[in-house]
Design a protein around this nucleic acid. Sequence first.
RNA 1: GCGGGCGUGGCGGAAUUGGCAGACGCGCUGGUUUUAGGUACCAGUUCUAAGGAGUGUGGGUUCGAGUCCCUCCGCCCGCACCA
Length: 822
Amino acid sequence: MARPFDVKAVEAKWQDRWANDGTYEVDNDDPRERFFALCMYPYPSGAAHQGHVRNYTFGDLVVRYQTMRGKAVLSPIGFDSFGLPAENAAIKAGSHPRSFTEARMKELGSSLRRLGAVYDLRREVFSHDPEYMKWSQTIFLAFWKAGLAYRAEAPVNWCPGCATVLANEQVHADGTCDRSGDLVERRNLEQWFFRITDYAEELLHDVDPLEWPERVKTMQRNWIGRSEGVEFELALAHDPAAGLRVFTTRPDTGFGVTYAVIAPEHPMLGELTTDEERENVSELVARATSASELERTASSDDGAGLEKRGAFTGSFVVNPFTNARVPVYVADYVLGTYGTGAIMAVPGEDERDFAFATVHGLPVVRTTQPPADFEGGAYSGDGAHINSGFLDGLDVPAAKAKAAEFLAEHAKGVTKVNYRLRDWLVSRQRFWGCPIPIVYCDTHGMVAVPEDQLPVVAPDDVTMDQSGQSPLATHEEFRNTTCPVCGEPARREADTMDTFTDSSWYYLRFADPFTPGQAFDPVEAAKWMPVDQYIGGIEHAILHLLYARFYLKALVDIGMAPGLPREPFKRLFTQGMIRIDGTKMSKSKGNQIAPENYYETVGADGLRLFHLFAGPPADDVDWTDQTDEIIDGCARFIDRFYRLGQCEGVRFHDTFDDSDLAVRQALHRTIAKVTDGFERWGYNTSVAALMELLNTVSRWARSEEGAHRGTLDEAVDTMLKMLAPMAPHVTAELWDVRHPGEPSVHIQTWPVADPELVKQESVTMIVQMNGKVRARLEVDPDIDEEQAQSLALSDPAVVEALSGAAPTRVVARPPRLVNIIL
RNA sequence: GCGGGCGUGGCGGAAUUGGCAGACGCGCUGGUUUUAGGUACCAGUUCUAAGGAGUGUGGGUUCGAGUCCCUCCGCCCGCACCA
């Protein structure tokens, strides 16, 4: 493809200028209205791929557009530079994760520059920078001192592939690791946790007003998983003074409780197990506790495994509603970590209980009347209560309230809210992360590393393997230290922090990396926060976004961020992913189409335009055989525009005529369309509108009659401004050619449509007969109903079709249409 | 199973509040320029012979439905023993 300008040279030239001119460096006291635009900072995996191109093109467009709207736009970038891939790669290559990571940061950084993305590089942060680590550790210690970080033994997720424990959020439902895909094991280990559950309620409520994609909000809500119910006691049959506490969201179904179930981990299991049943029970417990999540869940799909997964304990409890003795089972479908670890089982209204009861021959009592056509086993819908004594006839909500009252009086019942969300496990047995700044002293226990000794930085000469022991644990020099309190020998914590801790506060550092001696100055950071537009991938819908929300709330509460909003990201946009052959285009799958392939031919501008034009930004993009042709089409558009901007083949006329007016109207209507597209993430329609306008203007300027110079200049210069955020290089170049010595197109003011020109002085009104178009009339847009009707009825085509007959009804919707009903 | 979203030409996709379906682009067809190919430029391109039909299926509301309501079918995403 022959281009009318030297793409490579032009793009390099402007990239150099932007790196040096400071246009996109903003100070915290900038007097302009502020706008914080942020793309999720990338993990440095090497040169940018198409997913990066798409992400950072959107981000750059927002930055340049808002700048042209007169705002001081904070556009920072950095690197999520701690992480497992670098450590694993370093083990393989026998190098150090730092050198590996820093080389890739360099690559990715120049890749983004090559894309034409502009940032305030003075604010750059990366997780493994000791200056950043210092504050990551300061925050950890502040959480600890505030009781938000604690150390506890718990059954945790251990990934053999990653050789570390994982957070719940990093384990899939099928029990595999989010990163490596290995089957995760359960181990009882002492680990560090953040008390994110303290914020469950607030994290749930504060989702509502956020301008985020609905599905992300739904995912957050589901993850937190609030449920309201009653916790009460089932008295033990053999010892009525004692009881088994259970949690239920359906107290109204109490009359249908025909057995109870406790989790294999339940502390009362031993006490409830009779000698006759002891063998069965211990067999089940052994299997349940050693089984992986996968094995434990796999059998739930069919009823087959259920028999083996539960055992009778030999004990009975009393149903407080019926006073009947019901058996207590132990089964692994009840989780030890949720609610009280024990349930009342209602097979008539709960599917899992129904399946279990069926296999074990336990009675089923229905307590809610299902609809006549109901055919399933358990019925969980609404309906009148039956077989339920004093609850009979009530619907579910009313029965719930009454049953709760009853339980409060007779079974030590209390209403209770439970959450699915668990505390965040933050310690990792790996090297390439931020060390946890704690020292263990025989006398003083856990002691914080004093502020003046931060950051704790890991030594370089560490043997990294995947033994499962923290690499730092075997480094005696690092490990052995003295107690900050008594000076006696002590040992350092050897675990590092989950890398999600790094990305949980980086936006604050971006807002103010300048104030010495602080992670950020709250007053300075408050000038930018919250982030006005956050952009990233849907894969972070739960983990990163939930953690970052928690961090900010916690920082405000413990006094590190007074005056800051409690939510970090006001608006979130999640872009679609790039797919090829139906799967995600990714480095690990080796199916990438490198952006570099395009830089020499269509340029960064051409590729950017493609990503903007390909479809709605939120949708996935399929990379197909057709894609290269579409990309060529985008470059062709740039070239056609460039030629027009050089007045190639243009004829001129001297006086302003009707054709000029028509072009100006088209131009101003396009301004409105493009701006609308920018405001509602409809960049594909913005590009389409500009293409359409180019067609109109080119045809006009090259016609026999020609163009008026002033009109053409207005059209081209305005189009240059609108195209500038999308294709920044070629627009900068052409603007410079047309306006040598003047300020760049990128600091011009975004065009505003003239309402007079946007307004149509005549519109096409369609005349329908029985809903079918019979005539088109040019009418005044302000035409009233009566005028529209009489115009339509006097149209020759209509008169002929009517042939004297009177219409039944005439619907006039001026100025768009008149529908004549016969 | 539960929750969310989506079905429009050969393809990617456009369509304020219900009011000319298919903007824009790709591809394809024809033409101009060119020794030729490519580039560039111009014209055409939902189906149908006409009349008409047409936005996954069937129904409904309405003068009028891609758009609103219900049924079914298909696809995508998330969650999935959370009591």
